[in-house]
């Protein structure tokens, strides 16, 4: 299992960030997420493999600066 914004969801071997987001209907809002405290950005979504038991937070649209 992994935790996504405090909700438990099943983990799968080889699961990438892109795989995770493909199951969301609002994935386009997220250009950055945090996996176990590490930021992962959209250019790396396809390659980044999520470990089991990961704690993940979706970072809202970055509009700051």
């Amino acid at each position: 299992m992994i935790s996504l914004n405090d909700e438990k969801i099943p983990w799968q071997e080889g699961m990438t960030v892109a795989d995770l987001l493909s199951g969301l209907n609002d994935a386009h809002n997220y250009a950055v997420i945090r996996v176990n405290g590490k930021y992962v950005s959209r250019p790396n979504f396809d390659a980044y493999k999520i470990p089991d038991e990961a704690e993940i937070f979706l970072i809202p649209m970055v509009v700051g600066g």
Binding site: V32, Y39, S41, N44, G64, G65
Partner: peptide, 18 residues
């Protein structure tokens, strides 16, 4: 963004990635 722990330093890796 955990600004209460890390201030604005989170922007460094994000800006770098993009």
């Amino acid at each position: 963004n955990q600004m209460s722990k890390i201030g604005t330093t989170h922007l460094v890796p994000i800006m770098n990635d993009f």
